[in-house]
């Protein structure tokens, strides 16, 4: 059942939608590159895992979603958050451990969430998200909202029992769920060519009785197209789909990773495969969006990220009074 989709026909995106998609991808890229620089200064606490290079996946999928729909993410979750509409400044403040952050400084990079936007949280546990998405999809199905659940997970999580159990359950219950395996080539420092016993993660879909597709993760249009089909099928009661998105992450597993296990694939990808470059080339060549408008977006995004960092640094940290609040709703 596995198909390989190359760059397919764009799914009816008008100029504004394309510009939105570009803005999202650019925001993610700028956010992550800035974090890469800021982390090096030592000012950002804890663990940070960057999504740069993978922007087309979160953006191409989430462009189809609205507030009925929920997504679950991974420890590499900033891109999913931005694509699902979480406030960028609140995210930055959260990563800086500030009280003004999305989670008031109690979650950090690995736990940014905004349930009002259907963003069920970045997740520090590999394979933590897919079972949860069965639940949000079940809720949508029970309530008849037409909503879907999307579980983003990595090649590492594709080997977790939770992910496999969740795919089976979603198929057994015919849930409106989409499983997006973001295969960036590495689970920590281990290559997916070694850790995933199948040729492709998407091949596993057959074992769960659901369609599986492979898409070029550097190609926004390919992701967008595959997601469109899967999401439409889910909304119409056709059950779950597994989409494997293949690409390379631009940074290490975490900030500080020396990446001695890698060869030169990042430089090659940045130069020849990069999703933003390809997007820009395509939409300007077809005349759908003028380059100047893209440039304007770049500038706006840069300003936004500057402001986000500046505000985050200036924001207050949580206080002792916050330590024991919000463990329970009522206790």
């Amino acid at each position: 059942m596995t198909d390989t989709l190359s760059t397919a026909v764009s799914h009816e995106l008008d100029g504004n939608a394309l510009l939105d998609a570009y803005r999202t991808m650019r925001t993610i890229r700028a956010f992550e590159e800035r974090l890469h620089d800021e982390f090096a200064t030592g000012e950002i606490p804890g663990f940070v895992h960057l999504y740069a290079g993978e922007e087309a996946s979160a953006t191409g999928v989430c462009l189809h979603l609205d507030d009925r729909d929920a997504i679950a993410s991974t420890h590499r979750g900033h891109g999913h958050c931005i694509a699902k509409g979480v406030d960028v400044k609140a995210m930055m403040a959260e990563i800086y451990g500030r009280r003004t952050g999305s989670c008031h400084g109690k979650g950090g990079s690995m736990h940014i969430a905004d349930l009002s936007k259907g963003m069920l949280g970045a997740n520090g546990i590999v394979g933590g998200g897919p079972p949860l998405i069965c639940g949000t999809a079940l809720a949508a199905k029970q309530k008849g909202t037409g909503g879907v659940g999307v579980a983003f997970f990595g090649d590492g999580a594709s080997n977790q029992g939770t992910t496999l159990e969740a795919m089976n359950l979603a198929s057994v219950w015919q849930l409106p769920a989409i499983f997006v395996a973001e295969n960036n080539g590495y689970a920590e420092a281990t290559s997916s060519t070694w850790s995933v016993a199948a040729d492709n993660i998407a091949d596993r879909a057959a074992g769960f009785g659901m369609p599986g597709v492979i898409v070029d993760g550097f190609d926004f249009f390919a992701v967008h197209e595959a997601a469109a089909e899967a999401i439409q099928r889910a909304r119409e009661g056709g059950g779950p789909t597994l989409i494997e998105v293949k690409f390379t992450r631009y940074f290490g597993h975490f900030e500080g990773d020396q990446q001695t296990y890698r060869a030169g694939e990042v430089a090659y990808a940045r130069e020849n495969l990069d999703c933003l470059k390809r997007f820009r080339a395509r939409v300007t060549e077809t005349g759908q969006v003028e380059a100047a408008r893209l440039d304007a977006v770049d500038a706006q995004v840069a300003d936004l990220i500057d402001a986000a960092v500046e505000e985050a640094k200036a924001a207050p940290k949580p206080t002792a009074a916050d330590l024991e609040t919000d463990v329970y709703i009522e206790y």
Partner: peptide
């Protein structure tokens, strides 16, 4: 009808699904 769901023997999946559904209004 439709509100008692049998599950495969997949505790992670259905316990997780219950948790996810709880965040989404059930």
């Amino acid at each position: 009808p439709g509100r008692v769901l049998d599950t495969p023997i997949s505790e992670s999946a259905f316990v997780g699904a219950a948790i996810g559904a709880a965040t989404s209004g059930l």
